[in-house]
């Protein structure tokens, strides 16, 4: 042990920092990818029970090893590259969609101190990275040389551009209240229990944010990008094997990201709902985990409940409903904070 420590001390400082960051990144990504695997299992089980089925129950006890089996199956399958597809872009599209989904986790605070990069502009960083996820979809649709994939990509691009604006405005309201773009500061502003959460004063923004999040991740009922009844599987129709799996991982990592962000920004992150004895015995990390789990359940519940939106209705909802709602609420926050004595509501 001591020899190891002395060896560590001899390394140059830059390499020490690099190794330390690498270990931290692995410590975030490995549990994240495990969660992604088990979210797919949870999805199949929960939707199964909602539809009065049992869901996967063959591989391992109660089907617990099903994600592992799925992974192995997809991993060893052949990647079929269509004729006349643009080979380089076809291969790089899944990676383009996975990288932003994983890189955004760098600024997520799991507790007050457990955060890889405590950026002052964390919220903007998240917005910038989530807006880049669309490239994977567009490039996949174009490079596949398939009309279904192309239609899916175009739908997805228009949808993501539309909902990003609503999402950005919802977060503008939030940062007006918190007075910071730092995610740790935003959570700290909600300290003190349930009544301090931004969920209450920002309720319209919360709804807009979460629904836009569902639309941004191309999840049902906004999954026209892969609407299988019309365009087979949309942008990933030509993908198989591990390249298909990478798209899948990106989608679920994005769902987890949206759920975590909603918990951090509107449900007080790692804080317990009541700052009294039985509640604050539970470690902060588990509170965040529990809140994320609630949002993930809502994601799956929505998918099991609602039929798919029609495309023009999606566009109408984004442009004509959500954006005006957020603009009005931003005005309300501004007017209340600076022109009336009730500004403390939006503190």
């Amino acid at each position: 042990m001591s020899t190891l420590l002395s060896l560590w001390g001899q390394l140059p400082f830059a390499i020490q920092v690099a190794i330390e960051s690498l270990v931290k990144i692995v410590a975030i990504l490995v549990p994240l990818l495990l969660m992604v695997a088990y979210v797919t299992y949870a999805e199949r089980k929960i939707i199964g029970y909602i539809q009065v089925r049992v869901g996967p129950n063959r591989v391992g006890p109660r089907g617990w090893l099903q994600p592992i089996a799925d992974f192995l199956k997809l991993f060893f399958k052949e990647i079929v590259i269509p004729t006349n597809a643009n080979r380089a872009l076809f291969i790089s599209a899944p990676v383009l969609s996975l990288i932003p989904a994983l890189a955004a986790w760098a600024v997520i605070p799991f507790t007050e101190t457990l955060v890889l990069a405590n950026l002052d502009i964390g919220l903007l960083y998240i917005l910038a990275l989530t807006s880049m996820g669309v490239y994977g979809v567009i490039v996949a649709g174009w490079a596949s040389n398939s009309k279904y994939a192309f239609l899916g990509a175009m739908r997805s691009a228009a949808q993501i551009v539309a909902y990003e604006i609503a999402m950005g405005f919802a977060l503008v309201g939030l940062l007006m209240a918190a007075g910071s773009l730092n995610l740790v500061e935003i959570v700290k502003a909600q300290q003190g229990g349930l009544h301090q959460w931004y969920l209450w004063p920002m309720f319209p923004l919360f709804l807009v944010y979460f629904i836009s999040g569902v639309a941004e991740t191309n999840r049902a009922p906004f999954d026209v990008a892969e609407g299988e009844s019309e365009i087979v599987a949309g942008f990933h129709v030509e993908y198989s094997g591990i390249s298909f799996m990478v798209f899948f991982m990106a989608e679920y990592a994005n769902m987890l990201l949206i759920a975590t962000l909603a918990a951090i920004m509107f449900l007080g992150g790692w804080y317990a709902p009541f700052d009294i004895a039985p509640f604050n015995w539970i470690p902060p990390f588990f509170w965040l985990f529990g809140k994320v789990a609630v949002f993930m359940f809502v994601f799956l519940w929505l998918r099991a409940t609602f039929p798919r939106y029609r495309y023009d209705q999606i566009m109408r909802l984004g442009w004509k409903v959500f954006i005006p709602v957020t603009l009005v609420w931003i005005t309300v926050i501004g007017v209340f904070r600076f022109l009336t004595p009730w500004g403390f509501i939006f503190r």
């Binding site: 917005l127 910038a128 990275l129 807006s131 880049m132 490239y135 567009i138 174009w142 990003e164």
Partner: peptide, 19 residues
């Protein structure tokens, strides 16, 4: 902001048209 505006929005529309 450059990434957010140019990469996230403007270039998506560019790509959309060029495609």
């Amino acid at each position: 902001v450059m990434v957010l505006v140019y990469v996230g929005a403007v270039m998506v529309l560019f790509l959309f048209v060029v495609m």
